[in-house]
Design a protein around this nucleic acid. Structure first.
Lengths: 227, 227
DNA sequence: CGGGCGCTTGATTTGAATCAAACTGGGTGG
DNA sequence: CCACCCAGTTTGATTCAAATCAAGCGCCCG
């Protein structure tokens, strides 16, 4: 099945980033232990990590967020293909939601995963590396979020996305998320995000063929927030 | 030696948070494998994690930060007693500095640590748990940093610190870091931090016997940023 | 004793939030 | 088929809060 082989390729890549051909047995074992599920846009998918289970995003995207007493939503992480959910046992204050239709998640029971690590040491390394990824992702987002001006934040965000998500045939980023999501992820107002995107376009660091398609024109300018 | 027994107690606590009496052999093994070092205020201590080594803060505090091209310093994490350094192999863009005199760090070589995990499985669990701690710490800071007003940020920060650092005999928090550090950690100007602390004091949610000593008076008010 | 660092307060400016309104495209129902 | 609707996006005007510029204070350390 197509999906099967996609997931296999993903697992092989994750198991040995340098040498995608190796580690087929471990990837097979992961594939066998996984139960896949598919989610629609805005559907809560926190159940995949209930009971301490671990999930891996196969396609689409998942947002991890919390809603404050005053109604403000704060997105603290965006998980895309290859990112793991549920690495920190349980923090009940966060919700998970599929961002787009056809978001597919492979789900593993913790005890199965534990048993697998004893047969395939590479899987234990995989988990460690995904946790390290999560730390780097959060650290990097903190750097972006900690910047002072909206132009620096949005620019840094787009530059970071550039390293994580797929491009269309013309080389433009295809943002999986809306302006509202970006705003809630950066701690800005939607209007500010929109205005800033327009300003970046006028400044020449990006092009916007459509609201969801972003062509990076000048990475340095984008990161500096200097235009 | 006093320090030896302090480090032992720390390792035992980290190895089994629920039952501090157990896991003495693993703690002993960690103690034997560790090389301690002591650092002075503002001294760069990134060398302890050079070559992929792992460090554990025994006392004092360490700040992890990056300096941008425009000179702006961004502190992305503050490590205190029990926190681990170098969990994400190497990200050369961050610097480490001791925050206070007498900051002590236990340092482990990665291969020694690896060998230990094979004898003591609890040590491998320890590392996983410390990584999960780091993720939770960063997520929580992101929630604080993503808030809109300075009062919410500073209030949330103090409330978070409350759960991590020691209190003096009167029950007040002893901040290990300066207003400048707090500002660089929250992405605010020093003046704003100072003003906000004063406002919180006047609002009655905290008391400030001295700039570095904070008594939490009303946690709810502090977290809401509502006063 | 001096100097500098850390902290605080004040006045002004700037930039993002907020309030308000129009526009777009895709989807639905008549 | 077309009118309508609606969520997402954009732009404009105004308000407000934090950055910036400026200056004074207390204290520790040399």
């Amino acid at each position: 099945m197509e999906d099967q082989s996609n997931a296999m390729r993903l697992f092989r890549r994750l198991l040995s980033p340098d040498n995608p051909g190796a580690e087929a047995p471990a990837a097979d074992a992961l594939r066998m232990a996984a139960r896949d599920s598919e989610w629609r846009r805005n559907q809560p998918c926190g159940t995949v990590v209930a009971g301490g289970r671990i999930g891996c995003v196969l396609s689409g995207a998942v947002r991890k967020y919390s809603v404050r007493a005053n109604g403000q939503r704060q997105i603290i992480d965006l998980l895309v293909r290859g990112d793991f959910l549920g690495l920190t046992a349980s923090d009940p204050c966060f919700s998970l939601e599929a961002v787009s239709n056809g978001t597919r998640i492979a789900c593993f029971r913790r005890q199965d995963m534990q048993a697998l690590t004893e047969v395939h040491p590479a899987i234990s390394e995989l988990i460690r590396n995904r946790a390290a990824d999560a730390i780097r992702r959060l650290e990097n987002h903190l750097l972006i979020q900690g910047r002072t001006t909206a132009k620096e934040k949005v620019g840094g965000y787009l530059a970071a996305m550039c390293r994580r998500i797929a491009r269309d045939q013309s080389g433009a980023l295809v943002l999986p998320i809306s302006r509202y999501d970006i705003a809630d992820h950066l701690g800005l107002a939607v209007e500010t995000v929109s205005r800033t995107m327009t300003a970046l376009r006028r400044g020449g660091s990006i092009a916007l063929p459509s609201p969801r398609h972003v062509e990076i024109r000048d990475t340095a300018m984008l990161m500096d927030g200097a235009n």
